[in-house]
Amino acid sequence: MPDADRQAANFQRVREAHQTELAEDYVELIADLIDSTGEARATDVARRLGVAHPTVVKAIGRLQRDGLVESLPYRSIFLTETGRAMAERCKRRHEIVVGFLRKIGVDEETAERDAEGIEHHVSEMTLAAFERLIRSKPLG
């Protein structure tokens, strides 16, 4: 069994990742919507996340309190500078994880789906290793 302090630290890291996962998903999606359509509306966010409109409204309120988005009732959602920076970090992590999974032979659809969970829990050290593998010669 691992050392108790190390095991506790690992579980703490996972709990912290779970706490930021929702915010990261929202800001990444909001950035994608703004970049592709020029705006992000709560109804579009709800549809793409597969959740109810009131769930999005509540989450947007939390994101506003955290300084990640700006929004007024019945208006588009905008990312703050901090929110945009978070979205860009999330997109980078997602692309690296997808690239790694594709490199080891996972099909595109599965890689995209699996990356949604992995990207929130992977360390910078592991991401760097994934990037090195992606840039290396083909496997096999």
Rank of each mutant, 00 (worst) to 15 (best):
L79D: 00
R102W: 06
E109K: 15
A87N: 03
K103G: 07
G105C: 10
A115K: 01
D107V: 15
R113W: 11
E112S: 11
V98C: 09
G117W: 05
G99C: 08
G117Q: 10
E95T: 07
I104C: 10
E81N: 07
A87W: 02
T110M: 12
K103D: 12
C90D: 10
L101V: 07
T82N: 12
K91D: 11
T80P: 00
G105K: 11
L101Y: 08
G117T: 09
D107S: 13
R89Y: 07
A87C: 03
G105W: 11
A111R: 03
E109Y: 10
V106Y: 11
E109Q: 13
L79R: 01
E119N: 08
F100T: 09
T82Q: 14
F100M: 15
R102F: 09
V98S: 07
G83T: 01
G105S: 11
E95N: 14
E95W: 06
R92C: 04
T110N: 14
K103R: 14
R93N: 08
G105A: 10
A85Q: 06
E88C: 04
A85D: 09
R93W: 02
V98D: 10
R102N: 12
R92T: 09
L101G: 03
D114R: 14
K91V: 10
C90R: 11
L79T: 01
V97N: 03
E109W: 09
L101I: 06
G117K: 04
C90A: 15
R84S: 07
R102P: 02
R84T: 05
E116H: 09
E81M: 06
G99D: 10
